[in-house]
Design a protein around this nucleic acid. Sequence first.
DNA 1: CGGACAGTTCGGCGCATGCCGAACTCTGGC
DNA 2: GCCAGAGTTCGGCATGCGCCGAACTGTCCG
Lengths: 232, 232
Amino acid sequence: MILAAESVATFAGLLADRSRAAMCLALLDGQAWTASELARHAGIGRPTATEHLNLLVAAGLLAEVRQGRCRYLRLAGPQVARLLEELAEMAGQPERPRSLRAVRASADLAAARTCYDHLAGALGVALFDALMSAGLLTNGDGLAVTDAGRAWFTELAGPDALAPASGRQLLRSCLDWTERRPHLSGALGAALCQQFLRRGWVIRCQGSRAVRLTGSGAAAVDRLLGLELAAS
Amino acid sequence: MILAAESVATFAGLLADRSRAAMCLALLDGQAWTASELARHAGIGRPTATEHLNLLVAAGLLAEVRQGRCRYLRLAGPQVARLLEELAEMAGQPERPRSLRAVRASADLAAARTCYDHLAGALGVALFDALMSAGLLTNGDGLAVTDAGRAWFTELAGPDALAPASGRQLLRSCLDWTERRPHLSGALGAALCQQFLRRGWVIRCQGSRAVRLTGSGAAAVDRLLGLELAAS
DNA sequence: CGGACAGTTCGGCGCATGCCGAACTCTGGC
DNA sequence: GCCAGAGTTCGGCATGCGCCGAACTGTCCG
């Protein structure tokens, strides 16, 4: 019992540092970053970043892939992403943006962003609502895909999107921390996000988790879901 | 974005200390402890405990009630308990019990314990399974109470147990970290646990989250659920 | 009123750890 | 082969913070 306290403390300590937390939160975009990028993002030197990243990888929070002279880092899995989101939510938002640029940036984030591997923000919530009211998903005590939904997702993303993903839950609703309402997560949420990116319906904003809905994206959601949104 | 890192780090830092973690984990039993009890449990002096508890209360992790010269502490809410459970699970179990007594204690915990405010361990999982196979709960894409279940719970715990609890989810399944299978959580899980304690079907083991199934408890679960368990 | 006890405040000690600069290693490209 | 750039190792500095003992406040009880 007292040993558990020790290991919980050690584990929490991994995220109890401003630099390590900044790096982990950056990785919530679901992509792999190089060590140098993470160092710059956290505002620290490369040596220090190396130390931090070694810790995080050893603890199983981060996974690494070495390619040539670059070391790519990503979150070790969805549970880690989930934990980070919860932590970020409970940590509250005492963040009162102090520059116009920061306001602009956080407005972009609130409009549309990726949340690890799926879409979030106002866009994510709007999509979720549209999927529900179009009868493609139901929420009768737990999320489920309807028959119409199966057809819809198969046409969009191929039959694999609905295949029993390797141990991962197909549908999950994730509480959006800007909208305070749920959006679609889980394997299907990830597949949806992937298609939106691949088809150019949304594009990533440089160096941020924010994404922009393109003209073709707006047209697509109108056509497929009857959802009228403005491109940005 | 960088501000969020700061607050996440600060928040995680609250649990990144062995003593604070020990106190929080102790409070996972769902009961209120006095400051001195927590200090003793964490193996630190009262002055140090006061500092830690002030931090945890200020951060909203713990709630306090002052009565006379005693200061009672409890977890601030179910989300906190959930976060702690997740953290404890991810922190893994590098705990290789080193004394016979520790083995015995962890065996007790695995058999039956409280998980914040509901029953867990082998007992919790067995009850959950029995509720399902008796047709009182269903899990067709999300937990739900059947009509038979409504009658059963009303008889056991009164109609309030099924009332729309103040904002809290009625049913939740919580992954048991010893059994690796789900047990009943949420408001109904809490009500069930409360009845078991009130009726003397289980009793708390001193200074631990473990509980013991009594003889009358074993008889009751057999009568009500057809579940044959040995008292311990 | 006085003793017992829970909790708090204060000052100071000592360790843990986050940080950097400088030097080193490895890979890829010309 | 040599240079550029990514990453690592090392030594040392500075700060933060967890801890305690001693003294103080407040409550309950006889």
